[in-house]
Amino acid sequence: MPVTITIKKKLPPYSLDLSLSFSAGELIAVLGPSGAGKSTLIRLIAGLDSPDEGTIQFGNTTWFSSRDKITTSPQQRKIGMVFQEYPLFPHLSVWNNIAFAAPDTSVIESLLSDFNIAHLAKQKPARISGGERQRVALCQALASQPELLLLDEPFSALDINNRQQIRRLLKRIVREQNIPVLHITHDLEEAFYLADRFFVMENGRESRTWLSRQLSAGRTTNSVYDYKSLSIQPLQQGKHLAV
């Protein structure tokens, strides 16, 4: 299902004002400095906050329209979301956290196995590491069989080996299920590996300059700096800024 978003929201000291559209199976990396409004954008798409004006259209369904006074609840939007702090239900085991969203046990078993966390099924979230929690959060988001996936820095707590493995896995799942994904990240290498397209934000608006400034100044993380040639390469292979 294609997603079309045109929204405005006052977000002192600036206003969020942007238009974005993406189609089924497309993975968009949302980039930009801290405080650019990236997390607010996905909260608005998820229905956890409401824009001041604009529309959010998912296929033929209007999720939000200020003109027609339509606001569908988060429950009706069939979204999978990994929050920035990857919260999990502390009173439920890993299995039950995923079961909370999953339609049947075969889905849970398959996800636990794919994400290498089957051995943690009976553990409570407090007893597992940050990286493991993040993998459980991803499983939970995918278990609900969403029609749109919103990821807010979903790999930030993973070590390098797990990060690469989970990236590949996510890419495969997204391709297989043909769902659109909005993926917030500060890791440019990750964005170049995963994304079909970039959406760069600064001060609540789409930015044409932030990413090129980061790349030319080498003002990125060490890992990106080491992979600088790799990170520029995909741009030449057809990836383009959403500008």
């Binding site: 609840s73 988060p74 069939k78 919260p87 239900f89």
Partner: peptide, 13 residues
């Protein structure tokens, strides 16, 4: 609040 939002996104009433 975070967990209630998570549950809402997962479709729970």
């Amino acid at each position: 609040n975070k967990l209630a939002e998570l549950a809402a996104v997962l479709g729970k009433n």
